[in-house]
Design a binder for these strands. Structure first.
Length: 419
RNA sequence: GUGGCCGUAGCUCAGCCCGGUUAGAGCACCUGGUUGUGGUCCAGGAAGUCGGGGGUUCAAAUCCCCUCGGUCACCCCA
């Protein structure tokens, strides 16, 4: 075991092949799904002025306890992004693109917390943000994109929870009602939850502590505190989802971890995972965030999906498997390797993936390497082929045997024999 | 931030409780098994600061303390 200096820092890790291949494919699938809806990629910086993230709310742990903050050499107070919505909205406020502005992103975020399964200090998310329209159909589009993405991966056991936190006034009234409810029964709450009550009463609805369960179950419901306007919006969102055939469960106690959400909120839960990491994605409306960052008042809605947890869910459902091989063809050359240089280049230029053996090893060793590479075919160049201007193509996966062909016919032979 | 469990070859682990000759196994890796051919089999080989530091002891992988790391749960969140 190496010195801990030369290990990836706590809460981080290296993604090696084949996981890295699967990782990249996931992002490609995501880009394809949201690209089909006209979403454009945005690549924000990985750090921002710390105030950008403070806009997310000081009462959230993500901001108050988990941010990687630092001063740069110019004395600027910066923070690694704990999520990307804030950066995207900041970019919106900075560039003032015409609305609707529909964008997607993929990349790492950073939160200083204890690592565990499905939770890392550097973790990747893919997501979309749509700014401009207040239209409930946009909420439904955004939700549907995530849903279609999961479908494309092959996930079957994802459920969608939705809720509405109402307009700002509704939300305030609800928080008051919640505070009254819990304060009246504060003795029954766990000590930690009493603390939460003082700082962020909404969060109590998320408590997993058994001693809080009864009180949480008896708590007033947001759904009863919605204004007509917010209720109508929520109804239309659900109506559109229903029309799209996307099943959702209204979850009156669904509150999201970031304070900027208003009105529609939603979460995707992987039924195949344990509760500690089953929230594989979530999002909602944040209609006040843009103006908080200096833009004209602009509604917005979006989601972020955790790449790691989504892949955990894929593992649990045994879908979206990693590729079996990195190459199609493996070149074996026992007459010095000069031919291998040319043949691999030719095969690669023909659009096939090719690797070869090194260090002029024995045929046995090279064939072993060919087998291990996962390639479907080996191209063998020995003494006979060298002098005869031929190459032998051998099937490594089935029982199709081998044949020796003219070098000029090699590519065509490979193409014919590859699956 | 709190708590449980764990840390011996690249990987999975045995050995630790009852300190004592050159620290083992399987998988993976390398070389062979004569006349160019992998996937099975056989033989051999290479590979370990026993996470790190300190302590107890004639002697520590083994006992004690600290520390770092991993893992799981809580918290929180993706």
């Amino acid at each position: 075991m190496a010195d801990s200096t030369y290990r990836a820092p706590k809460g981080t890790r290296d993604i090696l092949w084949p996981d890295s291949a699967r990782w990249r494919t996931l992002v490609e699938v995501f880009a394809d799904v949201v690209g089909s809806a006209g979403y454009l990629q945005v690549v924000p910086p990985m750090f921002e002025h710390v105030e950008v993230f403070r806009r997310l709310g000081d009462a959230t742990d993500v901001v108050s306890k988990e941010m990687y903050e630092f001063l740069d050499k110019g004395g600027r107070s910066l923070a690694l992004r704990p999520e990307q919505t804030a950066s995207v909205v900041r970019a919106f406020a900075q560039h003032r693109p015409v609305v609707p502005w529909k964008v997607w992103y993929a990349g790492p975020n950073f939160r200083y917390e204890r690592a565990q399964k499905g939770r890392f200090r550097q973790f990747d998310q893919v997501g979309v943000e749509a700014l401009g329209p207040d239209d409930p159909h946009l909420d439904a589009e955004v939700i549907a994109l995530a849903w279609r993405f999961y479908e494309r991966l092959g996930l079957r056991r994802v459920s969608l929870l939705v809720n509405s936190l109402g307009n700002p006034e509704d939300r305030t009234r609800y928080v008051d009602a919640l505070t009254a409810h819990f304060s009246a029964n504060a003795d029954a709450l766990s000590a930690e939850s009493r603390q939460t009550l003082a700082t962020n009463p909404l969060r109590l609805l998320d408590s997993r502590r058994p001693e809080d369960a009864d009180l949480v179950a008896a708590a007033p419901q947001m759904i009863d505190h919605l204004s007509d306007d917010a209720a109508r919006h929520f109804e239309q969102v659900r109506g559109a989802l229903d029309a799209l055939g996307i099943p959702c469960t209204v979850s009156p106690r669904l509150v999201r971890g970031l304070d900027y959400y208003l009105r529609t909120t939603f979460e995707f839960v992987a039924e195949a995972l344990d509760a500690a990491q089953d929230a594989i994605g979530g999002g909602g409306r944040y209609d006040r965030l843009a103006e908080a960052m200096g833009a004209p008042p602009t509604p917005g809605v979006g989601f972020a999906l955790g790449v790691d947890r989504t892949l955990l869910a894929c593992d649990a459902e045994e879908v979206f498997e990693a590729p079996a091989s990195a190459v199609d063809v493996f070149v074996v050359d026992t007459c010095g390797g000069d031919e291998a240089v040319l043949v691999t280049d030719e095969v690669r230029r023909a659009g096939l993936r090719a690797d070869r053996a090194w260090d002029d090893r024995s045929m046995k060793a090279q064939m072993k390497a060919a087998d291990r590479s996962g390639a479907a075919l080996a191209v063998i160049i020995g003494e006979d082929e060298c002098s005869g201007g031929t190459a032998t193509v051998r099937d490594l996966r089935g029982d199709a045997g081998q044949e020796t062909v003219a070098r000029t016919d090699l590519i065509e032979t490979l193409r014919t024999r590859l699956p």
